Measured scan of single mutants.
Amino acid sequence: MEVRTIKVFTTVDNINLHTQVVDMSMTYGQQFGPTYLDGADVTKIKPHNSHEGKTFYVLPNDDTLRVEAFEYYHTTDPSFLGRYMSALNHTKKWKYPQVNGLTSIKWADNNCYLATALLTLQQIELKFNPPALQDAYYRARAGEAANFCALILAYCNKTVGELGDVRETMSYLFQHANLDSCKRVLNVVCKTCGQQQTTLKGVEAVMYMGTLSYEQFKKGVQIPCTCGKQATKYLVQQESPFVMMSAPPAQYELKHGTFTCASEYTGNYQCGHYKHITSKETLYCIDGALLTKSSEYKGPITDVFYKENSYTTTIK
């Protein structure tokens, strides 16, 4: 009895394709271990004539594949690729409408935090270190965002349907971005203890939790000093293409032309909904596939993004 075979390709990165001759009487799992086709788990399936010449994702289970996976995804987590594939199996079914010149995501599976993050990423200057993220990001900007969303979920250790947080998501993504040249110098002034300067680099240099107003941050924000008295913390120097200011959701007025974009969060910790506000020729609110415009805006804002380049204080 002759062994019926077909020729397929296996890959971990969709760049390096490895030619395989597979036995049609055995499952993919018996031949390769966990195997995925377009995100779908085909591990328990036997090869079919229609699979001839198709590319299958496999887990990096030998040295060659491990090197290829690390170079593309910059992670050695053995569960990463499987999590990416199972997320992709959902995100490829989502709709990605162009809204006001940006790629958004039609609401499904509690994905409003991903839509808000995706919209924000198209408006701030950011370059990702893992080629996987950078490639998928370019495709997302062009309207094909399924891979990018699935990668975000995998890097953030999230599953489809789980509630997510924009600030946490951005923080994970910033860790995989090139923020080497970003720098922030802060000064804390206390009447009792004097003053202390701190220099922050990388992710810490672009994120701040405690106030939404970048102007206020430049002037000074009140913080408790270690001595128990009130101290003032203010920005001395900022070198970065953008800054992200966050605070627990509270009524906040966004003035046209003073910011790049913002995240609105309605609801409580267990259950809520994100919308995205962007400042173009007027203010726009993007909620999944829905767009509304207004000249002014007041609502429960939790993150505001500002364009920056270089700032030095005039406070002496």
Rank of each mutant, 00 (worst) to 15 (best):
G161R: 03
S213Q: 04
G210M: 10
Q270C: 14
G272F: 11
D77C: 09
T10Y: 11
K293M: 11
C149M: 10
T10D: 02
S86E: 15
K127S: 12
G202W: 00
D63F: 06
A108C: 15
G210C: 03
G257W: 01
C225T: 03
L173N: 03
P249D: 06
T292G: 07
T43Q: 15
S295L: 12
K293P: 12
S79T: 13
I152W: 03
D109N: 05
G267P: 10
V189I: 15
H18M: 10
A154D: 00
D109S: 05
T260D: 13
G53T: 07
E144D: 07
Q20F: 10
V203E: 12
Q30E: 03
D41L: 05
M85V: 06
L163S: 10
R66S: 07
D13M: 05
Y137C: 04
H18F: 07
N49P: 01
Q98P: 06
K46W: 11
T11D: 00
I124A: 03
A142F: 11
T302E: 04
S279R: 08
K218F: 03
T169K: 03
P224E: 13
V185H: 09
A136M: 08
A40L: 12
P60T: 10
S171C: 14
P241I: 06
S295T: 10
E162C: 07
T91Q: 02
G82V: 10
K233C: 14
A142C: 15
D63M: 10
T260N: 10
L88Q: 00
F242R: 05
T27D: 08
S240R: 04
A142R: 12
Y214E: 05
I301T: 06
Y234W: 10
L163K: 15
W94Q: 00
D62L: 03
C190D: 02
I223F: 07
L65N: 08
D62R: 07
K191N: 01
P224I: 14
K44L: 05
K218T: 07
T292A: 10
H48Q: 13
K233R: 11
K307P: 11
V22W: 02
L283T: 11
E215Q: 06
T169E: 00
L200M: 08
Y57W: 13
L179S: 00
S104K: 02
T314A: 14
R83P: 00
Y57R: 03
A154E: 00
S50W: 14
F9C: 09
E168H: 06
Y265I: 06
T266E: 14
T5F: 10
R167H: 13
R139L: 10
K95D: 11
T314W: 09
N61H: 07
A108H: 06
T19W: 07
E264N: 02
G82A: 14
V58L: 09
T55Q: 08
Y297R: 07
P248A: 09
S279H: 06
G161Q: 01
I301E: 04
D13T: 04
H176P: 01
K201T: 13
A136E: 09
G194A: 07
S25E: 15
Y306M: 06
T199S: 11
S181L: 10
N100R: 09
S279A: 12
G29A: 05
Y234I: 10
R4F: 13
A40S: 10
A115Q: 05
A247C: 11
N309V: 13
N178V: 06
M209E: 15
L114E: 02
G299D: 03
V188I: 15
S295I: 13
A250K: 15
Q123L: 03
Y84C: 02
A145H: 01
D303K: 05
L126P: 11
L81H: 13
G228D: 02
K44P: 11
Y274A: 08
L88M: 04
S181I: 09
R184V: 10
S213M: 08
T5A: 14
E52G: 10
N268E: 09
T43D: 04
E253F: 04
L186K: 06
P300L: 15
T91N: 06
D287T: 01
K46A: 08
G33H: 00
T103I: 06
C285T: 08
V67D: 15
K275G: 06
